[in-house]
Nucleic acid binder design. Structure first.
Lengths: 180, 180
DNA sequence: CTCGAACCTGTCCCTAAGGACATGTCCATG
DNA sequence: CATGGACATGTCCTTAGGGACAGGTTCGAG
């Protein structure tokens, strides 16, 4: 139930509406934990039922901001420190790589080159976030420092994948193109 | 629908039963694409309905082996070469890192040290697979070569995460422990 | 004043994933 | 011969995720 705790974690920074949280998931967490608004609104309702968050204010345009409760803060801390990390890595790119031998060599080279470009660009995107944080563009509050650490992971992960895609282009792989 | 294509890809290597495929997903694909047997049996049924696979043989203990059809082989190749790669990276460890500022510093250090150990061990696990393939323990058929490439990604990804966890232990991060 | 864009909240439905439960076979060991 | 473990297939049910649909508000530009 990571979405639940992701929501609690974001609300620990301060009150926010479902709309705000959907935006934050899009920009900050979009690449590591996608979440669409239908799921977010539903989960906010459940969190409120469980007393982990409560309505902070109702503003213009029906805007309903939630605030984390002491129970909610305790719950997100319990999750962070007392639960096992789920190390599942569901990467479609890696699943595909197991079947590279089914691709015509030219298609595979093109594919790997495109992947390399994508990963380098994404690594650069995270580098820009990291540079902005290091310049102090967003202050240096604890949440900002944590995002800097997350961005570092984004950089290293995508850099590793870019280097892998480059390496794979040189790796020997006889195709099985003729066998159908 | 990656499970569907993962199944087709594995069946492209030769006939296999649902039980075999569950084992392959466990050992080969378990870390990049977990799949339990209930999902596998259900999906095999649908693939057979769609004519992408067919029953190859029925053996002892009710064993039912499937064989990929020409349509199925064409479909997995179409998936590999003509569909967009889904680059979604749903990593709980990264989601958690955004909330590191909520953890007491001592807990965080312990957590990062444990994570580092886990990632180093997992990287070593992939290194052993890669070394075995390089020694030729499994021959050098195209599918084996592809798994070697996938293992390389496993090594690089987990090594990057281990280095990140090590780096994060030295990164400055003031906690927000007192604020509840 | 009107109209479109951004703001804001939700429901509905389908598929994917995963844990629990159920069933039966074959074989080796004691 | 009995019994446990690996082999083998499946159902059921709940939750998670994601696309489509639906509706209402505020504000700024023309």
């Amino acid at each position: 139930m990571s979405l639940r705790h992701g929501l609690l974690g974001l609300l620990a920074e301060g009150p926010a509406s479902g709309y705000d949280l959907a935006g934050r998931f899009q920009e900050v967490l979009g690449m590591v934990w996608p979440a669409q608004h239908p799921k977010i609104y539903a989960e906010l309702g459940k969190l409120a039922d469980d007393g982990l968050i409560e309505v902070d204010s109702v503003g213009a345009r029906g805007r309903k901001a939630y605030r984390i409760t002491p129970d909610g803060l305790a719950e997100v801390r319990r999750w962070l420190t007392s639960t096992e990390v789920d190390h599942t890595m569901r990467l479609q790119a890696l699943l595909r790589s197991v079947f590279f031998w089914l691709m015509p060599p030219d298609d595979l080279r093109r594919h790997l080159a495109a992947e390399e470009t994508y990963y380098r660009q994404t690594a650069d995107f995270y580098r820009q976030i990291a540079a902005a944080k290091d310049r102090g563009d967003y202050g240096d509050s604890p949440p900002t420092q944590a995002i800097r650490i997350a961005a570092e992971a984004g950089i290293r992960l995508h850099q590793a994948l870019a280097d892998w895609a480059e390496w794979a282009q040189t790796a020997p792989l006889s195709s099985d193109e003729d066998s159908d």
